[in-house]
Simulated scan of single mutants.
Amino acid sequence: MNNNGLSSYFQFKNVDWSNMWGATWETVWMTLVSIIVVAILGALLGLLLFETSNSESIWAKVLNWIVSAFVNIFRSIPFIILIVLLLPATQAMMGTIIGPKAALPSLIISAAPFYARLVEIAFHEIDHGVIEAADSMGATQSQIISKVLLPESMPALVSGLTVTAISLIGYTAMAGAIGAGGLGNLAYLDGFQASNNTITMVATVIIVLIVFICQFAGDLLVKRIDKR
């Protein structure tokens, strides 16, 4: 395709840049809010799975089974279907089923179980001898968690959170296609449905740039905290 062909295909003068930057901010906002909640909830679920995985207590085994079932079920449901399933709950919690705020419940519930498994795997990869040594020196369970589990697994936790954040960026685009706002919504309504190829292309490029920035920041942080 020559330059004239490209010019006719991509009409940058038809892009409303104020709408584009507004949609970009909505995507970034949905991702940031979601990843903060996912980091907390996923870490707690992953820690719960790890702590109850080898326990001899019947109650711990039951709790592990319940949490594992929750994680496996919600990790297996395709995101676009999960959004639809959670519409009644979203309406009850958020008071609306459209806009960036309405996307948060489905984003969090879809990503937290995924990150929980990554947290559990990170904890299981820690040398068990380090945990036993801390236990033999009289460390309490909370001290083992705060001074052994979290510091030793921190590079893996940050790396897993980076992967989860990138997945969330993709989820926001899918959520946008059904009215959640952001770049996905703009690309679908003002781009695809309006046959405006330029808006679709620009929105895609911005999403790719956000992913690259997220990956770069995550990799840089992992290098700084990894003392191995």
Rank of each mutant, 00 (worst) to 15 (best):
I207G: 07
G22L: 10
L150C: 03
G22H: 10
I178G: 03
I77V: 15
L149T: 03
G138Q: 09
N197V: 08
F114C: 00
L63Y: 04
A39W: 06
N4Q: 13
V208M: 14
I213E: 01
G46V: 07
T140L: 02
Y188D: 11
T90P: 03
V202F: 11
C214M: 15
I121R: 10
S146R: 15
A203Y: 08
T204R: 01
F114S: 02
Q91A: 14
L45F: 09
S34R: 07
A133C: 12
I145S: 00
G170D: 11
M93H: 02
F74A: 07
A134C: 09
F79D: 05
Q91R: 15
V28W: 06
A133Q: 13
A165G: 00
G138L: 09
T90S: 02
Y171G: 01
Q91T: 01
M1T: 10
K227T: 03
M20L: 15
E120H: 13
A173F: 04
I98S: 12
S195I: 04
Y188C: 01
V148Y: 12
I40Q: 06
V163H: 03
P105Q: 06
K227A: 06
I126H: 04
P78N: 05
G22M: 05
I97N: 02
A39E: 05
N3H: 03
R228V: 03
Q143L: 06
A134P: 11
R224I: 07
A122P: 02
F74T: 02
I126N: 07
A89D: 02
A134D: 06
P113I: 10
Q91H: 12
I77W: 05
A187T: 11
L6N: 10
S110Y: 13
I213K: 09
L104K: 04
G22F: 06
L87W: 05
L32C: 12
D16K: 02
W25Q: 09
D226I: 00
V163R: 07
Y171K: 12
Y115H: 09
M174F: 10
D135A: 09
T140N: 05
V84T: 12
L189I: 15
S18D: 14
A112I: 05
E125I: 09
